[in-house]
């Protein structure tokens, strides 16, 4: 029998199994823990923290935020321990997959359905079943297996108060070079840099000085953008440049939604701006909602340092234009 068949058989034994005895919440649902949660998350809903308002609310008294569901039975500091023998079947399963090279884990999905909000002094008990283990799948992170668990939460009377399904990917990390993640990258992604060459460096130097330049043929005066070394009208290699006034109108535009590319901020308005000098340039429109950009909208140049190293000529609707376009 091959190694992989052996693993499949071993995994099959976990499917459908309860991971261990029910987890009993070490604390009753209580106001201090709820207050700490609301404070750090900035949740100002008074039904969680103000007994008087809560009493007049649809709940008739204080309740805990339903999304705190998992908190009541979390293992706490024990989670920081690591190592040691597996405490339940779920840990045992993870250890088995780690042995087979699926060393990393990431949570991918979580669904919670609440039968009722928990109240102070509720005692929560959780029972977890391993519902499914997928065959090996290829993902952006690496090849791995999805593990689905289902946890049922009950109160002291044994009545169900909520259930949750949780999906994790246990995976073999892809080679670092192909990992499209923040791994080993700066905390904040940045826009892609333009490459510089003989033919465009002077233009970016203009931007650094605060000028939006337009290349001009020194023989026939034809303006051209994007820059190129020869004039297509008269084949002259002599050229200079003029600074654009910065006034223009939107000739066409798009709103980027998908895929969200790190470093830009989506949705993102990109426009083809026709400058009053007659050339066109692709840029972003800032200062209005992306979906408020319209063809024909008057815009004005705005030089912006988008990060420590990159300055870009961007455009902003001239005042009132965004409202008029609507």
């Amino acid at each position: 029998m091959s190694n992989s068949e052996e693993l499949e058989r071993a995994l099959a034994r976990y499917v459908g199994a309860e991971i261990g005895p029910p987890a009993v919440g070490p604390d009753l649902v209580n106001a201090p823990m709820v207050r700490h949660w609301c404070e750090i998350l900035g949740d100002a809903n008074p039904v969680y923290t103000d007994p008087d308002v809560a009493a007049r609310s649809v709940h008739g008294g204080l309740v805990a935020p339903p999304t705190m569901l998992q908190v009541w039975t979390m293992a706490g500091v024990a989670l920081a321990g690591g190592g040691g023998p597996a405490a339940d079947l779920q840990q045992e399963l993870h250890a088995l997959l780690s042995e087979h090279g699926y060393t990393s884990v990431v949570a991918t999905n979580c669904e919670q359905v609440y039968d009722r909000y928990l109240r102070p002094d509720d005692r929560v008990t959780a029972t977890t079943v391993i519902e499914a283990i997928s065959p090996e799948k290829t993902t952006g992170l690496g090849t791995g297996r999805f593990i689905d668990t289902r946890t049922t939460y009950r109160d002291a009377k044994g009545e169900r108060v909520a259930w949750m399904t949780f999906r994790v990917l246990k995976f073999k990390p892809a080679q670092p070079a192909q990992a499209a993640s923040p791994a080993a990258a700066p905390a904040k992604p940045r826009r892609l840099r333009p490459l510089r060459s003989h033919d465009n460096d002077w233009w970016w130097q203009g931007v650094a000085r605060g000028d939006l330049l337009i290349q001009r043929c020194a023989e026939c005066g034809t303006l051209r953008h994007p820059p190129r070394p020869m004039c297509g009208a008269c084949q002259s290699l002599r050229w200079d440049s003029v600074a654009a006034s910065g006034r223009g109108v939107v000739y066409s535009h798009v709103v980027m939604h998908h895929p969200p590319i790190p470093g830009y901020g989506f949705p993102l308005a990109v426009a083809l701006v026709e400058l009053e000098e007659g050339t066109r340039i692709v840029s972003n429109v800032v200062g209005c909602a992306p979906d408020a950009v319209r063809i024909g909208m008057p815009v004005q140049l705005e030089m912006q340092d988008v990060d420590e190293e990159l300055r870009l000529p961007l455009f902003r609707p001239v005042s009132g234009a965004a409202e008029e376009a609507r």
Binding site: V53, H59, P66, A107, N109, E111, Q112, Y114, Y117, K188
Partner: peptide, 17 residues
């Protein structure tokens, strides 16, 4: 405040740093 959450289903992507 009187809105009652019944179900929260989420899918995770890029980490929050």
């Amino acid at each position: 405040r009187d809105a009652v959450l019944q179900r929260v289903a989420i899918k995770l992507g890029a980490p929050n740093l």
